[in-house]
């Protein structure tokens, strides 16, 4: 047997509450992050990702407290992202109990930050989050975007993911901004292109609306892990149901 494919529920946290919006708009309240993390752990989640979507200076302490509280009650890996700009931010999150830290905008603005972070803390805890948007003028081509898709960077996604892998990223969290919140499924063409270009694991994200989408992310996209938020938060499906569906389709999962 080999390493199991992972299911990662994602908590988008705004001022200490879990929220989820369509394309980052229309935010709905889904509850207390610690309680939700505990529920996912019991249901068999393989990891938990928490994104601090406010990521403002004022609410930062709330984030550290939430991380600490989750980490002392949930014994599976915890990745935390949102507003990570300095080495000091990473150190504080790891000290609070995060196992991995996800870097997004600050990596794009200063690629050597990825290198510095991986050298200092080890590749195993550095996840680079890449938000991708399909280019309108060219097929099979995606551009890296930041600030929730509002800012186009001109960087090519495939080149960028190769570069950060070389700089020591341990994993890529790949979100299709075209699909995020749409419930139409992952952009598997994107996932497959990125995944086959690098040797580090890729987590597919953005667009999950049903359990078949999770299966497709692994089978068609070639993702090592699949991330979803709203289908789990509002109890449309449980993690257990998701794992059973994946197992039935022949994917190795952990029970």
């Amino acid at each position: 047997m080999s390493v199991a494919k992972r299911i990662i529920p994602c908590l988008d946290v705004d001022k200490g509450r879990v929220v989820k919006g369509v394309n980052f708009l229309n935010i709905r309240d889904a509850g207390d992050p610690v309680e939700i993390a505990k529920r996912y752990d019991t249901e068999g989640a393989d990891e938990i990702t928490m994104l601090d979507i406010t990521a403002s200076h004022e609410t930062r302490d709330t984030t550290y407290k939430t991380v600490e509280s989750i980490a002392s009650q949930v014994f599976i890996p915890l990745t935390v992202g949102g507003g990570v700009r300095k080495i000091e931010d990473i150190k504080k999150l790891l000290r609070s109990g995060a196992d991995k830290v996800s870097i997004n905008t600050s990596a794009v603005e200063n690629p050597s930050f990825v290198k510095e972070a991986a050298d200092k803390f080890g590749s195993q805890c550095i996840v680079v989050a890449v938000d991708a948007k399909a280019k309108t003028d060219k097929e099979n081509s995606w551009e890296v975007v930041t600030y929730g898709g509002r800012n186009r960077t001109g960087k090519d996604v495939l080149e960028w993911t190769e570069q950060v892998a070389e700089y020591g990223a341990g994993e890529i969290l790949l979100t299709s901004m075209d699909r995020d919140g749409t419930k139409e499924g992952f952009d598997n063409n994107l996932v497959s292109k990125v995944s086959s270009g690098i040797s580090i694991p890729v987590i597919a994200s953005g667009g999950v609306g049903n359990l078949d989408h999770l299966i497709d992310g692994v089978k068609i996209g070639g993702a090592e892990a699949v991330l979803a938020a709203s289908i789990f938060h509002f109890s449309e499906f449980s993690i257990k149901e998701a794992k059973e569906a994946m197992k039935a389709s022949g994917i190795t999962v952990r029970f």
């Binding site: 047997m1 390493v3 199991a4 580090i200 090592e224």
Partner: peptide, 8 residues
């Protein structure tokens, strides 16, 4: 994939 990351 390397790192070997996940449940085995």
């Amino acid at each position: 994939k390397v790192p070997h990351m996940g449940w085995n």
